[in-house]
């Protein structure tokens, strides 16, 4: 068993807020590397130019975990991402992102017992519009002690 203890009371508590400026060169490289061909993602002169929807999943806060889960991140794998896009995000947008833990659960899989922590990041743009939400499922192979 791991020496990291999970306190499920951390679910729902906001633990980080950051401000992000979306960069055009990063958006273009991201789109090109993923194989996007639609000009709204590849051509800055396109009238609806925007970042690829999944690019919002690349942003991380100053803290990936709240204080109470600091030890969890070491040895985790990225088990999946859910990206919800509510409005286009464009290069130059100034986003404010807040992080919280949305869920903690245990299960067993091909690689043995695992603990999942779901990190939720919600993005609001400079006009106060909620533009995206990303659920990042992090998994660690050794089950942690639940409180």
């Amino acid at each position: 068993m791991s020496d990291v203890t999970i306190d499920k009371k951390l679910i729902g508590e906001e633990f980080d807020v950051i401000d992000i400026v979306v960069k055009q060169d990063e958006a273009l490289t991201f789109a090109r590397a993923c194989g996007e061909t639609h000009p709204r993602f590849t051509d800055p002169s396109h009238e609806n130019f925007q970042i690829p929807p999944t690019m919002v999943a690349k942003f991380v806060g100053r803290k990936i975990m709240p204080e109470g889960l600091k030890g969890f991140f070491v040895g985790t794998f990225d088990a999946g991402k859910v990206v919800d896009i509510f409005a286009p995000i464009r290069p130059g947008d100034k986003l404010r992102a807040s992080s919280k833990i949305a869920d903690i659960y245990e299960k067993t899989g091909r690689s043995g017992p695992m603990t999942f922590v779901v990190h939720r990041m919600e993005f609001t743009n400079q006009n106060g519009v909620k533009v995206a939400c990303v659920d990042w499922r992090m998994v660690r192979r050794t089950p942690l002690k639940a409180e």
Binding site: P53, T54, F77, A79, G80, K81, V82, V83, D84, I85
Partner: peptide, 8 residues
């Protein structure tokens, strides 16, 4: 795309 949900 309004939602994309992937399991790795």
């Amino acid at each position: 795309i309004e939602r994309i949900d992937t399991v790795f």
